[in-house]
Simulated assay, not measured.
Amino acid sequence: MSAVRKAGLVGWGAIGRVVGTALARREVPGAELVCIVDNRPLGDAAPAPQVAFEEALERCDLIVEAAGQGVVREWGERVLASGTDLLVASTGALTDEELAKRLLNTGPGRVYFTGGAVGGLDLLQAVRAVGPLDEVRLTTTKLPSTLEQPWMDEELLSRLRTATGPVEVMAGTAREIPVKFPRSTNVAASVALAVGDLDAVQVRVVADPGAHRTRHVVEASGPLGAYRFEVAHLPDPDNPATSRVVPYAVLRSLAALAGRGGQIL
């Protein structure tokens, strides 16, 4: 492996632009942006060459996914089989247990994921090492427009569009929810990956026209105590389904993978 991680970025959207710009400016010691993969022509807006996925695998030793769950499903195994590492931002894809198993068993590349818009995952992992958590609940509250999905019937869409206060859109497990909201509930998958059990995490998705900040509340109890984490993020102005903090979580993960400088792990 080279001393400097040669990173290829997949996706030039709300997350990718921030991550790619920081990499291009060498703001992550030990990592450089080598190329960008996106199905849209980027022209002069791209700070690195825009290439096809196959060429990115030849140029890079690390692929950073910032384009959605479909990329992980379609390309994840090929990335790892080529010997290239993969950093996943769209953790919702890993709620497909068969896919997750294949990714973990494919090599020689290694797969990593970022916690994204939620904190406390390291603590949940520490508690899980002692014994299973008794109860884990996640409540995610977002603007109604960011939660609309093609599968919704007219009654539910009408409830979202006419809501004057919080409305529960769906409740289920971390196995079920990310499939229904592929761009809005990666946090559910991140919590489940930390806990180690998709079915143990109970998720509520709430639409609130007054939710000027995207809110995630994690409540858990286990053999060592009880825990509650709450975050309230500003949504990205270009893509309100994504919190503005997410690309910076990706950059922190990149810094850890590059292995430069001291930090809390």
Rank of each mutant, 00 (worst) to 15 (best):
N39W: 15
V191R: 01
R260K: 11
L80Y: 01
K180L: 08
L99P: 07
E65C: 06
R159D: 04
L156C: 10
A255E: 05
L147R: 03
V19L: 13
R213H: 15
L133V: 13
G131Y: 13
Q125T: 02
G68F: 15
S158W: 15
A126L: 05
I15R: 10
D236C: 05
A226P: 12
E176V: 04
R40M: 07
V130P: 10
P144M: 06
V79W: 08
A249C: 07
D236N: 11
P49Y: 05
L143N: 00
A194W: 04
L99C: 03
I177V: 14
N186M: 12
D38T: 03
D199P: 08
V4I: 13
G76M: 13
V187I: 11
G43A: 13
F113E: 02
T114P: 00
E219F: 08
E148V: 12
A56G: 03
V250K: 00
A249T: 02
D38S: 14
G43F: 14
R102N: 12
G119V: 10
R128C: 06
W12Y: 08
R5I: 02
C35T: 08
G262S: 14
V34E: 06
L86F: 14
G92D: 11
A129N: 10
Q125I: 03
E32Q: 11
V88A: 12
V127R: 00
Q202W: 10
A220I: 11
A200N: 09
G83H: 04
I15F: 15
T106N: 08
L33R: 11
E74Y: 08
L33E: 10
R110E: 08
T114G: 10
A3W: 02
A171F: 14
I264W: 15
R213V: 05
S184W: 01
K101H: 11
L42M: 10
R5A: 07
P166G: 11
Q50C: 12
V18Q: 03
A129V: 12
A7N: 00
I264V: 14
A189Y: 00
R59V: 05
G83P: 00
E55A: 12
G196Q: 08
V64R: 05
V217P: 01
M170C: 13
G131D: 03
L57G: 06
A126C: 09
A226I: 09
D208E: 09
G225F: 14
G120W: 06
V191I: 15
S2I: 12
V167C: 12
V71Y: 02
P237E: 12
Y227A: 04
P240N: 03
G13M: 13
L42F: 11
A89G: 14
G261Y: 03
G68N: 12
K142R: 05
G119H: 07
V167S: 06
R260W: 01
L33S: 05
S243L: 05
P29W: 04
G8V: 01
D38A: 10
Q125K: 14
V203H: 03
I36M: 14
A89P: 05
R213M: 14
G119I: 13
L156Y: 07
V205R: 15
I264Y: 15
L103A: 04
V231N: 08
A3D: 15
S90I: 01
D134V: 07
E168P: 09
V18M: 09
L99A: 02
